[in-house]
Computed example of a mutant assay.
Amino acid sequence: MILCPMPSTILIVDDDPHIRQLLVFAFGKAGLGTIEAADGEQALAEVERHAPDLVILDINMPRMDGLEVCRRLRAQNDVPIFFLSSRDDEIDRVLGIELGGDDYVVKPFSPREVVARSMAILRRTAARPPVVENVGVMRHGLLSLDTESWSAHWGMLEVGLTVTEFTILRTLLAMPSRIFSRDQIIDRFRGPGFALTDRTVDSHIRNLRRKFSDVGGIDLIETRAGIGYRLGACGGTDLTA
């Protein structure tokens, strides 16, 4: 197994001690430090206490499930989150991603795969160069993004976006005529919580289309088959007009 080149701490959250032990052993062989939590409340406390570099988070836990833990984490920080799920269910996966998850696997899983994909998230997060932020309000057709307040509008209607959704849309809006591949979208991200993988880009795009379609933005993002995505005309319909 390839050792992780950067010192990192992984918080493993699962109510099954056997799964925690498997992952602690696998991450240890890769040179990664670990912290354990057996439930959601303990997970939130460990994040506050230790500020881990990545959270491995089981969805199906008693009292406070992983999706609720993710909601609470995202309200206070952008630590990357890797979901574990015992249900091979599209709704679970898309909801987890929409809440701010960075990747997922379905149980039963290979500990080596979890470690490899976790290391990929950590490397991508650490390697991203700083970028110059667009400041102020960006506009294209009926779409507008306020990069200072992190708010999005279609016409006069505000559209609630996650941090990841906002950042994808800002990337496309910065160069509206350019077609971005999934890898190019991923490479535009930087910082904790922006550890996208090619598995999740399509889900974020679907979420963006759904949210803007609900307010009349049916042409928000175009798909170029075999290439990637670019911003649409954003003419759509202004439901406040």
Score class of each variant (00 low, 15 high):
Asp198Thr: 14
Arg182Cys: 13
Arg182Ala: 12
Asp14Arg: 00
Val24Pro: 13
Ile2Val: 15
Ile218Gly: 01
Phe212Gly: 02
Val201Tyr: 07
Gly235Thr: 08
Val106Leu: 03
Phe166Lys: 07
Thr164Met: 13
Ala37Glu: 00
Ile121Gly: 01
Ser149Gly: 01
Phe189Tyr: 13
Ile12Glu: 08
Thr9Asp: 09
Ala30Thr: 04
Arg210Ile: 07
Ala120Val: 14
Ala225Arg: 14
Phe27Pro: 02
Val106Gln: 00
Leu172Asp: 07
Ile12Phe: 02
Asp214Trp: 00
Glu41Ser: 14
His153Ala: 02
Val94Thr: 15
Glu36Ile: 11
Leu173Asp: 10
Val163Ser: 11
Val79Thr: 08
Leu169Cys: 08
Val135His: 12
Arg128Leu: 08
Leu23Glu: 09
Arg178Trp: 10
Asp202Pro: 10
Arg63Cys: 11
Ser149Pro: 04
Thr237Ile: 08
Ser181Trp: 04
Ile91Asp: 11
Leu99Lys: 12
Arg124Val: 10
His50Gly: 07
Val115Met: 03
Met64Asn: 09
Pro62Tyr: 04
Thr197Arg: 12
Arg128Cys: 01
Asp102Lys: 02
Asp92Ile: 14
Pro52Lys: 09
Val163Pro: 13
Asn134Met: 11
Phe83Gly: 02
Thr197Tyr: 13
Leu99Asp: 14
Glu90Gln: 15
Ile59Met: 04
Phe82Ser: 00
Pro5Lys: 04
Thr223Arg: 11
Ser86Trp: 05
Leu32Tyr: 02
Gly228Lys: 05
Leu95Trp: 15
Ala152Met: 09
Gly31Tyr: 00
Glu68Ala: 09
Gln76Pro: 07
Thr200Glu: 01
Leu73Arg: 11
Glu68Asp: 09
Phe180Tyr: 08
Arg190His: 14
Ser181Phe: 09
Leu11Gln: 01
Phe189Gln: 15
Asp183Thr: 15
Glu148Trp: 07
Gln42Pro: 01
His18Met: 15
Glu46Gly: 07
Glu98Asn: 10
Val24Glu: 14
Asp39Ile: 12
Asp88Ile: 07
His204Leu: 09
Ser118Met: 04
Arg63Gln: 14
Lys211Val: 05
Ile91His: 12
